[in-house]
Design a protein around this nucleic acid. Structure first.
Lengths: 239, 239
DNA sequence: GAGTGGTCTAGACCACAGG
DNA sequence: CTGTGGTCTAGACCACTCT
């Protein structure tokens, strides 16, 4: 394609061009990319090479192919939605998410370390309650550096159907890929116990993840605390 | 390739042929497959099609490609080895596995249900202790139907370096692909508490997985019970 | 029918490992 | 040097969706 004697394979350069185009907002969410043949011509490579370049993005869930129709920019799935909740007999349950708060706070040392930020820098903290039916299943906290998401607030998240990832993508142009969780069991502290209507020190499952942008910058830290006496949690770790 | 008007794409048929060849023991663990061009000629397809057919198996870890050398049958990774153990600051730790027992027992209802077996049928139960340094981190139980692994015992597992998957593959010709875990927090029962040198009711993390063969038969159930007060557990769920 | 993704080929060249 | 995996092309055809 371009004249630069870049030694990386052409299909990776194609991938990078597409990623750059997405980041630049060439094609908003839901839009179709140019066809594989168009892209091939525009980039000066063959259709097969374009196809291979897009394969990885399709596998990552960034693009969606529909035979006979086109290739589309995928919407941002909810961070929580990428997991499954099972009852004690393995049947999948559906959940409802309730936005509790979105506030600007100082990053805890843990969050700062995980995201490679200076200690005490400001982050947005988004708290959500996850219900299954009338039952409170878990609470989730999401932290992102405030300088990358200036003006984030509960209103904007609610407008996006309560999905922070949707706001990150559509309002701030950042798509996040989930990392694999770090798991522990912890005992419920007072605030969490209250939200989940459990006694203090009830044993909970903690799942901490760091998500990164398409170009590999770690940018979101999240922690899920949930009860697993009535349900089992099945993370899904692609990324 | 073959004359059957099979409507599945050629590269999937190639994949199936290779899988069949592996199952038939055409190439033992560590052996090289014929080159991509040889396979192409033998199967009557082009090299690109063979390559695409092998891609999935490479991604699944069944095959290993080495540029300039060849494509090799991968060894069976230890089920536990596919996870990571982190200390409280995110540094990866190495573990040592100790085989505790391998016995023939009646399947619990849970195991039978997970593997689609008749209730109470016989299974082999393999128990292992996972240490980090001198510290007992967790206990793992693996159950497989006894009729598929006639003659399995502790001696054979020890000969394979304590890795049951190695025995399954090399002695019984069955390669297993890991499923995603179902997670819960549970309280330590007496036997587990004793093995981990913890008091009864100490909160543990439980991770239950079902692994299946290359052709999709669920055949192994495993449960890990581990302490996460000093360590964090990071499963790795590819499959 | 026209346009899209999905597959396949034959042949070419490159990058790498080994004798 | 040869043989391997790894990339790339040009062109072909199929399968699907929409109009």
């Amino acid at each position: 394609m371009i004249e630069l004697p870049n030694k990386s394979p052409l299909y990776l350069q194609v991938r990078d061009q597409i990623v750059a185009g997405i980041a630049a907002g060439d094609w908003p969410v839901g839009d179709a990319l140019p066809s594989e043949f168009e892209l091939a011509q525009k980039l000066g490579v063959s259709q097969g090479t374009v196809r291979k370049g897009l394969d990885a993005l399709v596998a990552e869930g960034v693009l969606i192919r529909r035979q006979g129709i086109g290739t589309f920019i995928a919407d941002a799935p909810d961070a929580w939605g990428s997991a499954e909740l099972l009852d004690t007999y393995g049947v999948a349950l559906t959940t409802v998410i309730e936005l509790l708060a979105c506030s600007r706070v100082h990053a805890s040392d843990e969050v700062a370390a995980a995201l490679g930020l200076r200690r005490g820098i400001q982050v947005y903290s988004i708290k959500r309650l996850i219900r299954v039916g009338a039952d409170a299943f878990g609470v989730e906290e999401i932290c992102v550096p405030s300088d990358q998401f200036e003006g984030l607030d509960a209103r904007r998240i609610k407008q996006a159907g309560g999905n922070p990832r949707g706001v990150f993508l559509k309002q701030f142009g950042l798509r996040l890929l989930e990392g694999t969780p770090r798991l522990r069991t912890v005992l419920a502290e007072r605030e969490v116990a209250r939200l989940l209507q459990l006694e203090v020190d009830f044993p909970l499952l903690e799942s901490i993840r760091v998500a990164q942008t398409l170009d590999g910058r770690k940018i979101e830290w999240s922690r899920l605390l949930c009860r697993t006496d009535r349900y089992a949690y099945r993370p899904n770790c692609d990324a």
